[in-house]
Design a protein around this nucleic acid. Structure first.
Length: 752
DNA sequence: TCACCTTCCACTTTTGAACTGG
DNA sequence: ACCAGTTCAAAAGTGGAAGGTG
């Protein structure tokens, strides 16, 4: 009763008792490094036992309409760091991230509850070293560590709650202590990681996963270090991080001028970011009313799960041992054992998703629909051939902003099938660079900026004026020629442009109305049914040229262009097709345009896009970049049948390749293509009978970026609960505070 | 010797209990 | 007794420096 009071919509189905939920990470090849009994049991269970009957959803495209969007609020700051090569300190005791991951959610059902998770996935399988002002690959990555997920302290909270404020994951800590017991996210030093944010619908404590959306912001990639390697990063950190004020030489707080100007700052708390409730009692709140928990704490009474109803509930994260970027991935949703109330179903965007594995749009790279127990034939599986990445080195050539020149990175490149290197971008046309977004995110005006990001250049114009990018119209290129293998994850430049996309009208980049003019190209197969058109703008770094111009790429639109707007993809404009030696055929697609007047101030759009769908981007330090095999568009598009699993034998050798600035998120290993597989026993099958927003030409959903490390939510048929909630509660009592958020490790333990 | 890591330091911000007043 | 606002010491978050480790 109390629980129902707390969660009015909570309706505990009898069959749920004893059930156990997991957030599971599964290796692409379904080989779990840490297979658990629960997981094994789940897999052993017939699909129909795991996947409840699909909830009758409205035959509408509401899912699209209400597509969940996640925007990176402090995108400009991230871009500044990424332009230099973001480094994150990891310590034994745990270190927070800076910049913080600050996002804004929208598109949620205000009445439903959601859980926000943060995790980190390796960007590649390499270890790096900072040498000669550049990051270079020095070997293979170390064995993957137990994955841990940071649960936002507000979780679970209603959609209204999440949408009413900025969401910060600043409390998440990174550690290099593999034996960490605090539950911090364990990372290897000198490795590259990509943060991911997951939004999971939690209708009630026993029914998670009504919808699952994962978001990735390429500009948030970082390299882990125990001590800063690049002094440019150090400078940026000191200038940007309030805690580092003591190291600023200019100002009253400089420790060199210690005792001077020292003052306590008024309470600049993050009030509003975190509710005083829920947080650390994340799981607890699933069973208790907050006041009950407080009361028990006051009385010193232990909180035992048995006091609730004996329903085991847990999240589990499985860590894939092997994580070759090309490995297959699988994702599953928690099956529901009972249909949601119609009202709820209709009110939630997730439920309307017709396809089981839709990577819906770029708003969210993961949108998991309700499972269907009867069908498994529609699992969308895309197997991408090895990604070829061989990018020409990019060296800072300009002195425009010497203090923050892009750091060169050398990434391992997968051997291309083709021996003839092709420039990813052989020729570029530029338009005016949008004004800088400086002054944002605590950056001082003097903070050197890297022109690599459109928002930062030109350095001389640190104004808030918006200089809308005026992408040159790109001749429509048949998408049929689109070769997924040639399009690794886009670099940050593209995103930076996207985030600052100028377009504001619903016309596509080529001036065509959204969605019809251009038939879905062959690429569409790799896009989710909700996939939106994607365009990229890349600006040449001032380092390379004083004549800023813009490259705009538009990817095929897998479905309606309306979704694209969520990505804040640059607008109107046109697509500048790569000229000579274009890595791939380009075409302009309908591009929903942002309604925001000032694109440069828009939060960074989530890059929740299938990595394979991104065109390879080459930092344009030079317009005469040596050809890259990766961009060899002569390679025929390869479409793999669903359920096809990539075999390690297909992995190309890794060869060190300097691919330019970290900030550029160079193509290649940074975002390797991934293929999608669905867990046969856990994945909700696609019900063909369900209404779909997809057009007949729209291929099955493609699992988006970083699908190699999917976040799984599955139901375990067995009830044993490895760790009593009371234990977690006690941990909390003696450990972190509620507001610190909570972590889940691969073993299913919640660490507070 | 070197790259990398750990620990400590001095600084700052954040936090929350204690206090105060209505 | 309760609530809201303020105060302030402790805790926590910073990068630098020195030393340790392999």
């Amino acid at each position: 009763t109390e629980m129902l009071d707390m969660y009015p919509s909570l309706a505990l189905g009898p069959q749920r008792v004893g059930d156990c939920y997991f957030i599971e990470r599964e290796p692409p090849n379904h080989i779990s490094l840490y297979p658990t009994s629960c997981d094994m049991a789940a897999r052993a269970m017939p699909p129909h036992l795991l996947a409840p009957p699909p909830v009758p959803s409205e035959p509408t495209c509401k899912g699209q309409q209400d597509a969940v969007k996640l925007e990176l609020e402090n995108s400009s700051l991230w871009k500044q760091f990424s332009s230099v090569g973001t480094e994150m300190i990891i310590t034994k005791k745990g270190r927070r991230m800076f910049p913080q991951l600050k996002v804004k959610l929208s598109g949620l059902n205000p009445t439903l509850r959601y859980i926000l998770l943060l995790d980190m996935v390796p960007v590649d399988a390499s270890r790096y070293r900072f040498q000669g002002d550049a990051w270079q690959v020095v070997g293979g990555a170390e064995a993957r560590l137990p994955d841990r997920v940071f649960i936002h302290p507000d979780s679970p909270a209603t959609g209204a709650h999440w949408q009413s404020r900025s969401i910060s994951f600043h409390r998440a800590k990174l550690t290099n202590n593999t034996l960490d017991t605090q539950g911090y996210i364990i990372l290897h030093s000198l490795h590259r990681y990509q943060p991911r944010v997951h939004v999971i619908e939690a209708r009630d404590v026993l029914r998670w996963g009504g919808g699952q959306h994962s978001f990735v912001f390429p500009e948030t990639q970082f390299l882990t270090v125990t001590a800063y390697q690049n002094n440019k990063i150090t400078e940026l950190k000191i200038q940007s991080n309030p805690f580092a004020k003591g190291f600023r030489e200019d100002g009253m707080n400089s420790k060199r001028y210690s005792k001077v100007g020292k003052h306590k700052n008024a309470h600049q708390t993050n009030a509003g970011l975190y509710s005083p409730i829920f947080t650390l009692y994340f799981l607890f709140t699933l069973f208790y009313r907050q006041r009950d928990v407080r009361q028990k704490r006051k009385l010193g009474e232990p909180l035992d799960i048995g006091e609730v109803n004996g329903t085991p509930f847990l999240f589990k994260v499985l860590t894939p041992f092997s994580h070759h970027p090309l490995m297959s991935v699988s994702m599953s949703l928690p099956p529901y054992t009972e249909a949601y109330p119609d009202a709820l179903v209709s009110s939630t965007p997730f439920n309307s998703a017709p396809l089981p594995q839709s990577l819906s749009s770029y708003q969210s790279d993961l949108s998991t629909p309700l499972p269907s127990p009867t069908s498994t034939s529609n699992y969308s599986t895309v197997h991408f051939p090895p990604t070829i990445s061989r990018s020409p080195s990019l060296l800072p050539s300009s002195t425009t902003s010497p203090s923050l020149q892009p750091t060169r990175f050398t990434y391992p490149a997968l051997s291309p099938p083709s021996s003839s290197p092709q420039p990813i971008l052989s020729s570029t046309t530029y338009d005016s660079t949008p004004p800088s977004e400086l002054g944002h995110d605590q950056l001082s005006p003097q903070t050197p900026t890297d022109p690599s990001f459109p928002t930062l250049s030109p350095p001389s114009s640190h104004t808030n004026q918006v200089t809308p990018a005026a992408p040159i119209c790109n001749p429509t290129v048949p998408l049929s020629g689109f070769n997924p293998t040639a399009y690794p994850y886009p670099n940050s430049s593209a995103y930076s442009n996207i985030s600052q996309g100028t377009p504001q009208s619903p016309t596509d980049l080529s001036g065509h109305p959204p969605s019809q003019s251009h038939p879905a190209p062959s690429l569409s197969y790799s896009l989710s049914p909700h996939a939106a058109p994607l365009s990229y703008l890349s600006r040449r770094s001032p380092f390379a040229s004083r004549s800023p111009s813009v490259q705009t790429w538009t990817l095929p639109n897998g479905s309606s262009g309306s979704v694209l707007s969520a990505l804040s993809i640059p607008g109107p404009g046109q697509v500048q097709a790569p000229t000579a030696a274009a890595p791939f055929p380009l075409s302009s697609f309908p591009q929903p345009q942002s309604s925001l007047p000032n694109p440069t101030h828009q939060p960074s759009p989530c890059s929740a896009v299938p990595s394979a769908s991104f065109p390879t981007f080459q930092p344009s330090a030079s317009s005469h970049i040596p050809p890259s095999p990766l961009t060899n568009h002569s390679l025929p598009p390869q479409v793999y049948p669903q359920n096809q699993i990539a075999t390690p034998s297909t992995y190309p050798p890794i060869a060190p390749t300097e691919i330019g600035s970290f900030a550029q998120f160079n193509p290649g290993t940074a975002y390797l293509q991934e293929m999608v597989l669905h867990h046969p026993s856990l994945l909700p099958p696609l019900d063909p009978s369900l209404p779909s927003c997809l057009t007949s030409s729209t291929p099955p959903a493609l699992y988006p970026s970083f699908s190699s490390y999917p976040l799984h939510i599955c139901q375990d048929p067995r009830s044993p609960f490895p760790i009593p909630l009371r234990h977690m509660y006690r941990q909390h009592q003696h450990g972190h505070t509620h507001s610190q958020g909570s972590y889940l490790d691969m073993s299913g333990r919640a660490v507070f």
